[in-house]
Write a protein that binds this DNA or RNA. Structure first.
Lengths: 210, 210
DNA sequence: CATTATAGAGAACAATTGTTCTCAGTTCAA
DNA sequence: TTGAACTGAGAACAATTGTTCTCTATAATG
């Protein structure tokens, strides 16, 4: 799998990552031995050492183990061509930490669940979690979370000769979402920097839409 | 703070949550004693017991502690109503690990960047990162990453009397994306379990779309 | 062939672990 | 005043911990 590595650490790592996703804890050497099907705790310890060198594990206070910086890395496959299919794949793994990738300023970042379909043309669906970075200002064209007349709305900030206003992005139901012009003040809560979505299970919600 | 609780568990919990955010591990009773400024480990144990009853901690295999279901209790900002604006909300920041939320089987999960617009009706846009869980099978109606004639494609798995085939989800350009019927075999690489998206900076790509 | 890593096992050890038991102040209602 | 509850401390214990040391197979390399 990974040519440079003499001991195939990654099969051990995989099991551990799955375990951690389930149990939310890095187990002791004894339990790791069971998990990895290794008879000798000393050998388990050796493998752990290897994982530490690679940055997948760390020793916390009290010499217990905790996830290291690389523990949450995910492999990125190469180019899904959702248009016309693409040339076959040499699967050259690239790694990405989702949290780090999405959030740059954790202290100023807030998540909001989306309700309604006023932004579907931008691929923002009901149930999605949008990632908002707090800010009092934004430029027109940006997607913003605004507080209009004391209520939250996710809309596109626009501007004309009469001043700033908010636009929806739903062509099909544009008559349902007319531009919003605040009565007096338009308060920006933050701007949209991304989103994530967990698909509902099975082909239920994923079914035909016609 | 919490009227019902005789012992103010929440000041202890707060310190522990902060610690966990930094160290990604629940420490031992000894270290908890230091963290909480408690002289006797027995008393620390008592407090832990209380936290377990409330569901903030759990005993994992080997009687170590791990975060319980309420440990990450999310006070998500209340519902962005992308439709009609909603009642204002006290916005409390949430500490949700996006990674944990999205991925259940790390070792079998792979990310793929989306190219093309064949799935826009499901809110899957070019540039999005889709999260794929490896699997050789899927049921019709599911969004799958398939290998058709040695090429990757993200499509909806469908079935009729002639067998399985792949459908796009782009009503506007449906003529550009006819159903794909594999020449001989249709190999499923995995199925779609979610996605995340980082909006391109500034009002560039976010601009008007008419 | 001999040699040298690699992969694995078994035993042993001091330190730390979670837990329990006993005892001592403090608060507060009966 | 009496007596529970709380809140807290100290000691003690068996079990488990991380770690180290020694000892085999197996595989590759010269």
């Amino acid at each position: 799998m990974h040519p440079m590595q003499p001991l195939d650490i990654f099969s051990y790592l995989g099991k551990l990552q799955d375990y951690y996703a389930r149990e939310r804890i890095i187990p002791s050497t004894t339990q790791l031995s069971v998990l990895w099907n290794v008879k000798a705790r000393s050998w388990t310890h050796q493998i752990v050492q290897r994982l530490k060198e690679e940055g997948f594990l760390e020793t916390a206070a009290g010499s217990r183990l905790r996830p290291g910086p690389r523990f949450f890395e995910r492999t990125v496959g190469h180019a899904v061509r959702a248009g016309l299919p693409q040339q076959a794949a040499d699967v050259q793994p690239e790694l990405l930490r989702i949290d780090d990738y999405l959030i740059e300023k954790p202290s100023q970042t807030i998540l909001f669940p989306v309700k309604g379909d006023s932004m579907v043309d931008l691929g923002i669906l009901e149930g999605d979690m949008v990632i908002i970075e707090r800010s009092n200002s934004a430029s027109s064209g940006q997607v913003v979370l605004a507080i209009v007349d004391n209520e939250f709305t996710l809309k596109v900030l626009a501007r004309d000769k009469e001043g700033y206003y908010l636009e929806a992005r739903n062509e099909k139901r544009s008559q349902d979402y007319p531009p919003i012009r605040p009565e007096q003040e338009l308060e920006i809560y933050g701007f949209y920097i991304g989103l994530f979505r967990k698909a509902s299970v099975s082909g239920h919600r994923l079914g035909l839409n016609r």
